[in-house]
């Protein structure tokens, strides 16, 4: 059965691995240059006092390739779900060959296990290698500029893409099993995968681990934002420049009891009408600091790998649930 599954899968696998080889060559040619650039410009930059220029120069290098790689790792799991997962069984239904396949001397359960197993292994290998290559290639740039919890970084490096790919593959397969049509199954896999990624990004991941808090006194360099808000004139704290490598959820102006300043207090503490905006800001910060401080809620960078493992495990867990459903479905009376 494994040999036959391999025979059927060989064209899709060849396309994927061919693309992987091309990308590997491109990265192998351009990657060493980034390392050299990092070693020669960024490493000695503090002695020349031009670190900002050096890092900007580095992060701007091979811009199109950076964008392409981010895009690639975003879409590859979806492509795996659509072009590997969905047709895996839906095409057998569409062409009627399931009547040939399922009447050979192999039970349907075994057929399903081998097909899915092979798809999962191939998906892990492809996205794993791709993620490895991209992570390696980007490492000089990531060292100076990365925000590891940025969705455009977190989901396209290290372990997460592998979990996504497994889930997308299984999702496409199950859609094909239920719908028996390739195109609708591809579409379902795409929508389902994007929805799962979105739900995870927006609603689930922030709650996986309880965030940490840090308190800052307010001073003249605090990131305060003064201006009109929908509720009238107000002062809010922004997350600009705070804990750069960490994942900052919020920055709030609160007193010891955890209350935010009232509008009346703000009106008194932060009068406008000084000679300059700078003077307005200084007065405001000084008055606020008397009773209030800044409360930052965040996930430290050190939890990056914990989150990566969680992310992968959750998507593999989802995939396992879908696989369980497939086994029940394929054995149910049809």
């Amino acid at each position: 059965m494994i040999r036959f599954a391999a025979l059927q899968f060989r064209i899709q696998a060849a396309i994927a691995f061919g693309a992987l080889v091309v990308i590997a060559i491109v990265l192998a040619v351009t990657g060493p240059h980034l390392v050299t650039l990092y070693d020669t410009t960024v490493v000695p930059c503090s002695t020349h006092n031009d670190c900002s220029a050096a890092t900007t120069a580095l992060t701007d290098t091979d811009g199109p390739i950076q964008v392409f790689l981010t895009f690639l790792l975003l879409v590859v799991p979806a492509l795996i779900g659509m072009f590997w997962g969905a047709p895996l069984i839906a095409r057998e239904f569409e062409t009627g060959t399931y009547r040939l396949a399922w009447t050979q001397g192999v039970t349907r359960t075994r057929w399903l296990s081998v097909k899915l197993g092979m798809g999962v292994v191939a998906s892990v290998v492809v996205t794993g290698l791709l993620s490895l290559m991209v992570t390696w290639w980007s490492s000089p740039i990531d060292t100076v500029s990365a925000k590891p919890f940025d969705p455009l970084y977190f989901g396209v490096r290290d372990l997460a893409p592998v979990g996504y790919a497994i889930f997308a593959l299984v999702l496409g397969f199950s859609a094909g099993l239920v719908m028996r049509r390739t195109i609708p199954a591809m579409f379902t896999a795409l929508v389902g995968f994007v929805a799962a990624r979105f739900v995870m990004n927006s609603w689930m991941r922030p709650h996986l681990i309880a965030p940490l808090h840090r308190v800052y006194t307010i001073n003249g360099s605090s990131p305060l934002n003064m201006g009109e808000t929908p509720a009238g004139f107000g002062v809010t704290a922004t997350t600009r420049g705070i804990l750069p490598g960490d994942w900052v959820y919020s920055n709030q102006i609160v007193d010891k009891a955890g209350h935010s300043p009232t509008t009346a207090f703000i009106d008194r503490a932060c009068p406008l009408g000084h000679a300059s905006a700078q003077a307005n800001y200084q007065t405001c910060a000084t008055n606020l600091a008397a009773r209030f401080h800044l409360l930052v809620t965040y996930q430290p960078e050190s939890r990056y790998w914990t989150f990566q493992w969680y992310e992968m495990a959750i998507f593999i867990g989802l995939a396992a649930v879908v696989v369980g459903f497939c086994f029940v479905w394929i054995r149910r009376p049809s």
């Binding site: 059927q8 062409t95 009627g96 060959t97 009547r99 040939l100 009447t103």
Partner: peptide, 8 residues
């Protein structure tokens, strides 16, 4: 099977 399906 009917229409004798085969892998094209």
């Amino acid at each position: 099977a009917q229409d004798t399906p085969a892998y094209a």
